[in-house]
Design a binder for these strands. Structure first.
Lengths: 359, 359
DNA sequence: AAAACAAATGGTAGCGCTATCATGACAGCG
DNA sequence: CGCTGTCATGATAGCGCTACCATTTGTTTT
């Protein structure tokens, strides 16, 4: 076949192509209904259709009605990606927690979620597994989604993350612990909580008290509680031994912690556990071994998990308002996102010493 | 001042303005670094910069290096919204669960999350509170984000939701229960699980067995387990009374359930609880009341929560592989998203009867 | 040596929506 | 009656990125 005599097909191409100024390409992947189609069906312009959906009182009743009708008829689903790009507002809230195993964070998420979802925000969830570099990566990704705000557990970040967030011009909410954060902060004073429980144990007459935590470098809030605990004991002139477990907090680990304390510190009268999972695990293990709680050994926890309230004797613990923390954080964010003035950047949700029969 | 003799300033304006064809508006809200700036700094075209980041082996080593360097220098954070709009791929996975209070769903999320995040997907989290209309709303919203896939707990949806999903051309993963779903499915057979536990109780010699659940209309999987339970009891010629609590499953509710069963069915020998929270609550309550388990009353649960393993006697339960369910669901989704063939749409993760001392 | 091919890069045109400005209609007012 | 102000609507031009094609250069094949 000579190249001078192209076949009909290629000639057809050569003839039709110049008709269009450039080759008109087709990129639309799906057959998704667009706002323009809705607008056309409703007999209005695309921008009016947009307004009818986003600012209903900016359009006439008739326009609004016909747009909504068209949406219904065509089964239109707004493309939020396009909307966000155009408006640089996404109604996404990034939530970054260090763990999903630990029910404490889940309860905070729950509080956040119910409040934010009611206001039409969606949650983008990230889990750092207690790794600050991972946190940085997640923050980067989430900023890329033009999130309306970011919630993160804790006040500690690596320097890259800090820089990134400091230059970000949206609300940042740091939850769990109380302190001077980057922007907004809702939490409780963990050092004070540790002091509170230590004081309680001393008031009860215990002198040989061991603090048991798990992976304190990661769960640094537990280590802040230990700081408070230690300070009180030092003030009273007592030793403050620490036992650190290598496994993450769980019932199983609590049983292990009890065994180690009994082995290493046989005179121990009371154990102050970093959380209720550990404490309840120790309490149940003590019972299996026939130890009397608090007679042989007193046990205290932290968090006020339901489990601790149901065991016998009831676990002495410090009740932290976790869902409330989430809800308050969400409310404050919403205030801020609504352009309201923020009077306080720091919110102390407090805690309650709950004295059970275990001490 | 006559209007014919404008001052120098306004004349300057009048002179400069016509130079631009139309008034050049400025929309860029933030001073965010864009890919074009990165490209310029790297001395390549924007599209090459894009490729360097998204398809590193499609560009030369030198180009890749200089782009990455420029990214670093300028602190560029990719705008994922823009990228998603252009490519209609978002690397977002919608995850819709009925509850965050129930730790079972959280564990599934955990399994999903760790697997998906490792592959660079982000989770958009939604909570229906067991409301199918709410589910529909969430699905609509999430489809608007051009999610890469959607994970939802359960096979039941309202008709609008069903239609919407049926016309959606991305993978859909329905988890928790096993059955013919819309697309992919990873779960376990709840009827069989109910049968399994009922058979165990009968084998143990119990005849008067009550099933206790909470809000079965919502937690319909618990009611499927009851169906299995009932079927077995009927086959053996026994009655299968059901007690339905009005509060959601919790330790507290379990204690309440025990009290009601003892009041309404005094001859009851065994209680088959819909889940471990209820069962453990009842077990702990029984102990507080001085009842012997299983002597006075046998107690069984479902899920295999750690709590049930730590109480004495250990709770007889059915172990459901929840994190595994999440991980498997995520893996199958990733296979599918990677364009791999799917050999099986249904995956049975199974369950294990775990016999403790409580029956 | 010419032709065919692959690899690297770039120009262009959107993705679907909304911010911005412009316009036309209509009321109020001196 | 013209002037200003409000309201509803529309035309236009991006948001920042990537798909698509075209082009260039270097490498292999016949």
């Amino acid at each position: 076949m000579s190249k001078d005599s192209p076949n009909a097909d290629s000639r057809a191409k050569n003839v039709t192509t110049p008709a269009l100024p450039n080759n008109a390409r087709q990129r639309r992947s799906s057959d998704q209904v667009t706002l323009s189609q809705v607008a056309q069906a409703a007999g209005v312009s695309p921008i009016t259709a947009s307004r009818a959906l986003n600012y209903p009182d900016k359009v006439s009743d008739s326009a609004r009605r016909s747009v909504l009708q068209a949406v219904e008829n065509l089964g239109y689903v707004p493309n939020l990606v396009a909307g966000s790009l155009a408006s640089s507002r996404s109604r996404l809230i990034a939530v970054i927690v260090p763990s999903l195993i630990n029910s404490v964070f889940v309860e905070v998420i729950k509080g956040l979620q119910e409040t934010l979802e009611a206001e039409g925000y969606q949650i983008l969830l990230g889990n750092t597994d207690y790794d600050l570099d991972r946190e940085y990566q997640l923050v980067r990704t989430f900023l890329g989604w033009s999130c309306s705000a970011l919630v993160t557990a804790g006040l500690r970040h690596n320097s890259a993350c800090h820089t990134l967030l400091a230059n970000w011009d949206h609300p940042i909410m740091e939850v769990m612990e109380l302190g001077k954060g980057m922007d907004l902060n809702v939490g409780l004073d963990h050092v004070a909580a540790g002091r509170c429980m230590a004081s309680h144990l001393i008031d009860k007459g215990y002198r040989h008290i061991v603090y048991v935590g798990a992976r304190l470098a990661q769960d640094y809030r537990a280590s802040m509680r230990f700081d408070g605990h230690k300070a009180v004991l030092k003030e009273k002139g007592f030793d403050a031994p620490l036992l650190e477990l290598d496994t993450l907090g769980s019932l199983q680990a609590g049983a292990e912690g009890l065994a180690q304390v009994l082995a290493q510190h046989p005179h121990t009268q009371a154990i102050h556990f970093a959380n209720d999972d550990l404490a309840a695990g120790a309490l149940l293990a003590a019972q299996r071994q026939g130890l009397n709680v608090p007679g042989d050994i007193a046990i205290a926890g932290f968090n006020g998990l339901p489990l601790g309230q149901q065991v016998t004797p009831q676990l002495t613990t410090i009740l932290s308002p976790r869902e409330e923390m989430g809800r308050l954080a969400a409310k404050e964010l919403i205030r801020r996102l609504g352009g309201k003035n923020v009077y306080r950047r720091q919110h102390d949700v407090g805690f309650t010493l709950q004295i059970g029969g275990s001490t």
